[in-house]
């Protein structure tokens, strides 16, 4: 399992997953106070997916994300303080308060944006992969999307195009079982999203999204193949979200205790901790130190975001065009 993972990798993976969890849990609390504008979609429970994939990526690799994008942002290397400020709609936000939770992005680290349009990232990541191919780098593009987007034409077209152009791309279907309140058992016409890969001439792989190590291994193979010119892969990560489609969703459509049961038995952080400590790779004290550090970091981010100024009237009209006569 960890043949390719160094001790530093493991520490990094844990810190990333913990940062995402802490970020989302804190947002869950803070959103309820009414201080955060708009709405947020939390990634808690799905951390192993973003982390397992992005641990393979370099800054010049690109990812496209979804409306549930905070985890992808953090895993791709974005700073939490400007992200938090963005979600609060502040001028100090990574996007100056003009994007918000659903459009948080940082092109400097290869994060091409959360996306308010379900499936919107598929074509974009084909473009990122095409750019890498044209420039002759061995960079890759990774598109994260959900089970809802797996039925969206843009994603299906993008997967076909990626194979036709033999693009260095990876399509990561994060199947958390629900598109808003509609179960994927109802809305996806085949048993697995990965079953569709054959129709697009690419390998389809299914992994358990609660298991960081499984995601990491499968993503590693797919990304190495893409870098080597072997074309795209569809990776279906089966996982669960802990919170509703958006904050305020009471999840009455889910079975009683469904989330509680998953949290207690299959939580990705719990499985990771159990695995690394039983194998003697990391000790619990180290992980607890990371927990304390991350908690302090998120707390500082929230305090700073709350204190930060809002954008002003002068900001309304800027950043539409590079230049406009």
């Amino acid at each position: 399992m960890s043949a390719t993972l160094t001790r530093d990798d493991l520490l990094r993976a844990y810190r990333t997953m913990r940062t995402i969890r802490e970020f989302e849990e804190r947002l869950h609390v803070e959103f309820a106070t009414g201080e955060i504008p708009g709405f947020v979609h939390l990634y808690a429970g799905e951390e192993a997916s973003a982390t397992g994939v992005c641990l393979h990526l370099r800054p010049d690799d690109r990812i496209a994300s979804t409306h549930r994008g905070h985890g992808h942002c953090i895993a791709k290397g974005m700073e939490v303080a400007p992200m938090m400020a963005e979600i609060y709609g502040k001028k100090t936000g990574i996007c100056g308060g003009k994007g918000g939770s659903m459009h948080v992005a940082d092109l400097d680290v290869g994060m091409m944006g959360a996306n308010g349009i379900v499936g919107g990232g598929g074509p974009l990541i084909c473009g990122a992969a095409l750019a890498a191919k044209m420039k002759g780098t061995d960079g890759v593009g990774v598109c994260f999307f959900g089970d809802g987007a797996s039925n969206q034409g843009m994603i299906l077209e993008a997967m076909n195009l990626a194979t036709v152009w033999r693009l260095p791309a990876l399509f990561v279907a994060e199947n958390n079982g629900y598109a808003e309140a509609t179960s994927s058992k109802y809305s996806v016409a085949c048993d697995n999203i990965a079953d569709r890969a054959g129709g697009f001439g690419m390998p389809g792989v299914i992994v358990d999204g609660h298991d960081f190590f499984a995601v990491h291994e499968a993503a590693g193979e797919a990304i190495a193949r893409a870098r080597a010119g072997g074309g795209p892969t569809l990776l279906e990560v089966k996982l669960n979200r802990y919170y509703g489609h958006f904050e305020g969703d009471q999840q009455t459509y889910r079975a009683t205790d469904e989330v509680k049961r998953i949290r207690e038995t299959r939580d990705c952080l719990m499985l990771f901790t159990r695995r690394v400590s039983s194998a003697g790779l990391l000790d619990l004290a180290e992980l607890e130190a990371i927990d304390r550090d991350v908690a302090a970091q998120i707390d500082a981010a929230v305090v700073a975001a709350k204190a930060a100024p809002k954008p002003t009237a002068a900001d309304l009209l800027t950043d539409v065009y590079v230049e406009y006569a």
């Binding site: 598929g122 074509p123 974009l124 473009g127 990122a128 593009g141 843009m154």
Partner: peptide, 13 residues
Amino acid sequence: SAFIGAAVGAAAC
């Protein structure tokens, strides 16, 4: 959708 979007994505890269 795929190739117009790919052009957009490539432009951003």
